[in-house]
Design a binder for these strands. Structure first.
Lengths: 214, 214
DNA sequence: TAGATTGTTAATCGATTAACAATC
DNA sequence: TAGATTGTTAATCGATTAACAATC
């Protein structure tokens, strides 16, 4: 019992949140699963299942309370606890992530950046200091950091992750493209642009064969 | 017949490519499905199925020819045709993508950037010119651009995509976080950091409950 | 030949969709 | 009450894994 929510369901929750935000702005009090499904092009049963997984109950004949569901989902998504993260690799992608304001919704803040480039060290990005990489593990240990965002070159990913895991980091958001190998309780979320690009490239290849018109 | 390859399989192909590149550098001539599976933590049957979907045949008792399979997969992933893309939204994420050199492997080049910010217009990123947004559709039409990368704010995503689709763009790589609604032959690949962050945030939330030690 | 490894068919698993009973 | 909508159980679908026959 207490069924674990699937990754696929979890990925849909932010989409519900974003629709609910719009509905709340429009002052709508309730929404049906059919309406949510229509807006997100999902099956309405799937919507009810997803919401049921978060333990939120709707009302027959009425639907789901918009502000209540919104608050509930935000809470469920871990927005209740403030979380601090460090970012390793202050290149363009790293800087783009620091500037991305989507984190705040999840109560996640990037408190420091680390890099090996002497020209970057000592600088700031969006008000956060860039420190030398060798200080990262000690920083994580001292501040009890549990989350690290890796935007380092792929060769550096595994050694950096090992160091940080030793220092108590429990979750890695890995943009390096190199799959990480870490002991069990550690959470790794791999983000690989090359994978997506493969899908796009292959699909476009097919289109251009078909679309030989003109 | 001529079974369509699944998105899940397609996403694994770049991983095979990256392992094969390493094996090729080490001078290894052949590799077994078991070895590929071990390195990527997959089931070996899955590896054989994925490769079979691309119509590449291995040799019993020997395995798969490393250079041949590498060339075959690159070709299958659409690396055979040069493809030109434009990028709309020259913010930090857009600039990070322009600087990301993974595209080249797929023979995809970003030929121009577009933005509404007058301070950015006329500037360059990695040698590519930034033009005013209102010129994007005409540019796409004139140069026969088939691929657009959207790194615009979420409100702007749909209207920009509509304009570009009208101008003949067939594929969108959408980083805006706003799901796009486009007529059928058009390929849309949504990349949503918020979805991934939801997964991470929820998993970390669980960990910190358990990890109440210390 | 014998045996390692492929390629493919069958079984399992998990996620989505359909059907429908419960509820306000 | 009647009927719209939820919540849940059953059916379907697709992807992964297991079993095994084909092959060099």
């Amino acid at each position: 019992m207490a069924m674990q929510i699937s990754g696929a369901s979890l990925r849909r929750l932010p989409q519900y949140v974003s629709v609910l935000v719009r509905l709340a702005e429009e002052g709508q009090r309730h929404v049906t699963s059919a309406e949510l499904a229509r807006r997100l092009r999902l099956d309405e049963t799937l919507v009810r299942k997803d919401l049921a997984m978060t333990k939120f109950a709707g009302k027959p004949r009425v639907g789901f309370g918009v502000p209540e569901l919104l608050a509930h989902l935000r809470d469920f998504l871990g927005a209740q606890h403030a979380k601090e993260a460090i970012l390793v690799g202050a290149g363009r992608l790293g800087q783009a992530l620091v500037a991305y304001h989507g984190f705040e919704k999840y109560n996640l803040s990037i408190v420091a950046l680390f890099d090996t480039n002497p020209e970057k060290i000592g600088g700031q990005v969006e008000g956060r200091q860039i420190y030398p990489l060798w200080q990262a593990a000690a920083f994580a240990r001292r501040h009890g950091i549990r989350i690290a965002i890796l935007t380092v070159p792929s060769d550096a990913a595994q050694p950096v992750a090992d160091l940080l895991a030793d220092a108590g980091v429990l979750a890695f958001w890995n943009f390096s493209g190199h799959p990480l190998n870490l002991p069990d309780p550690v959470v790794v979320l791999n983000e690989d642009l090359a994978e997506s690009l493969a899908v796009l490239s292959h699909r476009v290849g097919k289109l251009t064969l078909v679309g030989a018109e003109e």
